[in-house]
Structure formats: C-alpha cells, structure tokens
C-alpha cells in the first residue's frame, strides 16, 4: 500500500511536470526547434525575447491592464460587500445574485456580449475595453471573497469607532479596510493574476495594442519555436514569484 502510494505520487507529479519541464528545458535550446535532441544550453532565445519590442510592449500593456482592472475590481467589490453586509437593503438577495452572475458564464460569452454592444455603440476597441471586460469577470470574485470575510467581529469595531465620533468615510478607511486587509489583498492578487493570464476577452476586445497572451498567441501561429519556450518560462517565473509573494505576505500573516 505504502509503495503503491509513492508510485502513484511519482507518476502524478511526472504527468504534472512533464510539459513544464519540456517548456523550460527547451527554452535553453541552442538549435532552432524546441524538441529533442537537446543541443546544449544557450540564452539566445531569452535575448531574442528581451529584444522583441512588440513582446515587451505587450508585457507592459498586460501589467497595466492587470493592475488597473484589479484595483477597480477590488474597489467596486469592497464597496458592494460593505453596502450589502452592513445595511439592510430591500432586494439584497437579488443584488447579490446579479453581482455574482458573471462568474457562472464562460469568458467567451462575456467577451462576445461586450464585443457586440461595443460595436453597436460605435466604441473603438482598445486596452480600455479589455480592462472593462476584465473588471466584469473579476468583480464577482472580489465581491465574494470580501463579502465572505465581513463578520460580526469587524462590525463591533466599526460601531465603537462610530460611537467615538468617526464619520462613515473614517469608519471605512481607518477601521474596516485595515481589518479586512488580508482578504482585500488576496482578492487584488487573484484579480491581477486572472487578468494577466486571460486570453479570450483580451483577444476579442483589443485591436492594435494587445496584451501578452494575445501577442504570444500570434507568435504561436508560426509553429514551435524555442522563443515561445523562453517567453513561456519567463511568464511562469513571474507568476510563481507572484504566488510565493502572496503566500508569504498574506497567508503567513494570518496564521
């Protein structure tokens, strides 16, 4: 039983890491194709990636869209969660349902709907429209995460602050936000990661300025290339750094 468990564990990790290992290994390929045999280590494809101004521009676009849409999603999600958790509003169940609804629909459909409306309205496609789309998919997530962590514990502190003469803005900014900081940070990081990695909405709603996944996508059309391995490995490195930062900054503190 014990050895069977270990065998399964090894096989499962082998399956999970096989494509990642192939991606990273052949990013150092000195030849022109990212397939066996491995012809010896070289950094030429990384140099190629760094020197590609289209790719670097797309990377910057992705960062801007991710940070911007993450910030907007968290701000809107936090306010909605605060409003619904702290006030008895008629129709609050319906409002919660509407706010959560985009989570249940494929990104493709969210993007298609937005594309149709933007075209009807005569609005041009740009990074702004990509950002709008990313807020639509990340807002429910931020709302759900923050709403779930708003408990009675913070409410008592808010009441105390109000009794001591704080106005609503002071209560929210000086009491609620600091107390919910871990949840707010987690929601922000998740939003940024999802936006950073999102393809289909960014593809449908962008035109000349594109995000990184869309740029990688257009490189993909010319087939297998170690350059794609290099950019893939770099993106993986950035994402893992983000995950580790989240783990260290947010979850460690909570324990």
């Amino acid at each position: 039983m014990r050895s069977l468990s270990w065998a399964y564990l090894v096989a499962a990790f082998g399956f999970i890491y096989l494509p990642v290992a192939a991606l990273v290994l052949f990013s150092f390929q000195s030849g022109g194709l990212p397939v066996p045999p491995f012809e010896g280590p070289s950094l030429r494809w990384y140099a190629d990636v760094i020197g590609d101004s289209d790719l670097m521009g797309a990377l910057l676009n992705s960062l801007v869209v991710a940070l911007f849409s993450g910030a907007v999603s968290v701000a809107l999600g936090f306010c909605a969660a605060y409003g619904l958790a702290r006030h008895h509003l008629p129709g609050s169940t319906l409002m919660r349902a509407v706010l959560i609804a985009p989570m249940t629909v494929s990104y493709l459909i969210v993007g298609l709907g937005l594309l149709i409306v933007l075209q009807r309205a005569g609005a041009g496609l740009s990074l702004w429209t990509v950002g709008i789309g990313h807020v639509v998919i990340n807002l429910p997530l931020c709302f759900a995460i923050i709403y779930a962590t708003m408990g009675a514990q913070q409410q008592n502190a808010e009441r105390a602050a109000r009794d001591l003469g704080a106005n609503e803005a002071q209560v929210v900014l000086l009491v609620t936000v600091p107390m919910l900081a871990p949840a707010i940070l987690a929601a922000f990081f998740l939003s940024v990661t999802f936006s950073w990695d999102e393809f289909i909405i960014a593809f449908l709603l962008s035109r000349f300025d594109v995000t990184l996944p869309v740029e990688i996508w257009s490189l993909l059309r010319s087939g297998l290339s170690p350059k794609l391995n290099a950019i893939g490995s770099l993106v993986f490195l950035i994402s893992v750094a983000g995950v580790v930062a989240l783990e260290l900054l947010v979850f460690r503190k909570r324990q």
């Binding site: 706010l99 969210v110 709907g113």
Partner: peptide, 27 residues
Amino acid sequence: EQVRGWGFVAPALVWTLAFFVVPFVVM
C-alpha cells in the same frame, strides 16, 4: 441608512448591469 447602503452597492451594480447584463440581453 439605506440610501447610504445603496450608495455603496450602486457602482458595482451599475458596472455589472451595463457591461454584463445588458450585453447578455443584446446577445
């Protein structure tokens, strides 16, 4: 109290209505 609550919920609600519900109906 309720008006204030609405004020907090409104931005997210308007965003979702304008950029999700309306596009969905149009689709």
